[in-house]
């Protein structure tokens, strides 16, 4: 009875690229990675199943600290991106009209036409000791001599927020655009003030968009490699750097794979926790992205 009607066949064919993509590029490498992470090299070309890699992570404070630091900084970056993107999204979605709106939207998208590497190197030009901003600060007398603005945690944060702001902005704009202006007017008419309307009307309405944007930014930040390395230098202590080191420098694939899985677990747990705390549903948030 399992006949393949033309309609079903069309559906399968249309889904095939997506399924292949998922299977070959996401699931297969992860299964392989998972298997690698649970083994131990006991001799040249000889492996045995083991939890040693995971034990190393918990026993070695460096790894553990890097891990926590990455999570905390990503969280800060996400919150700051939200705070910074919200007024911009509001302006684009509700205040700007017609050509101005299109122009503003284009202005936010335009920097992303350049590669992330180029954009990050741009920050380098601005912030390094002999760069534009330190020179200028020294010139107008704020500092005695040009100061090195690179290689601070704040610098990493600036870069992370900059490179992920768009992913917060787009779901926020979408969410705010669907907010009926008359709801705000009605709340105002009933005696609400700005702060109260923001808290009771605007934020609850935009909540799925806020969740979607925050998940995107948090994931991108947590998994970012380039920005912390370029702007933070050797002291960046980013967890992806540890993974890179294990795979490329140390050639310890087993340890790298275990770290990768720990990062995946961490991000999943934090996203789940965030949704639970704010009472959002994953499906709602994903529809807004």
């Amino acid at each position: 009875m399992n006949t393949l009607t033309p309609k079903r066949l069309t559906l399968y064919l249309l889904l095939a690229p997506a399924i292949l993509w998922l299977l070959l590029l996401i699931i297969l490498p992860h299964v392989g990675m998972g298997m690698i992470s649970f083994r131990e090299r006991i001799g040249p070309g000889e492996f045995a199943g083991s939890l040693k890699q995971y034990r190393t992570f918990f026993e070695e404070p460096l790894y553990w600290n890097t891990f926590v630091r990455t999570a905390v900084m990503s969280l800060i970056a996400t919150i700051m991106a939200l705070v910074m993107a919200f007024p911009v999204a509001w302006t684009i979605a509700k205040v700007a009209k017609g050509r101005l709106k299109a122009l503003m939207l284009a202005a936010t998208l335009l920097p992303f036409w350049a590669s992330e590497l180029v954009r990050t190197l741009g920050w380098l030009i601005l912030l390094r000791g002999s760069g534009v901003i330190p020179q200028f600060l020294a010139f107008i007398g704020v500092t005695d001599q040009p100061v090195e603005l690179l290689y601070h945690d704040a610098t990493i944060l600036v870069g992370l927020i900059y490179s992920s702001l768009l992913f917060m902005l787009v779901p926020l704009i979408n969410a705010l655009e669907t907010l009926d202006d008359s709801l705000i007017e009605a709340a105002y008419d009933l005696g609400g003030n700005r702060l109260n309307i923001l808290r009771k009307i605007i934020i609850p309405h935009a909540a799925p968009g806020i969740a979607a944007g925050s998940i995107m930014v948090f994931m991108l930040t947590l998994g970012n490699y380039l920005t912390p390395v370029v702007l933070g230098g050797k002291s960046s202590m980013w967890f992806t750097e540890q993974i890179y080191t294990q795979f490329i420098t140390r050639f310890n694939w087993e340890q790298g794979a275990a770290f990768a899985f720990l990062l995946l677990g961490l991000s999943s747990v934090l996203v789940w926790l965030g949704l639970k705390i704010t009472g959002q549903r994953f499906a709602d948030a994903m529809r807004r992205t």
């Binding site: 009926d180 008359s182 709801l183 007017e185 009605a186 709340a187 105002y188 008419d189 009933l190 005696g191 609400g192 003030n193 109260n196 009771k200 009307i201 609850p204 309405h205």
Partner: peptide, 30 residues
Amino acid sequence: NRRPVNMVFQHLALFPMMSVGENVGYGLAR
């Protein structure tokens, strides 16, 4: 928000994120 006037909007503008009771109580809470 300071006028002794209230308005019933064309499309009513009820707050979908609140219950009926919270809608009616919104102004009182303010």
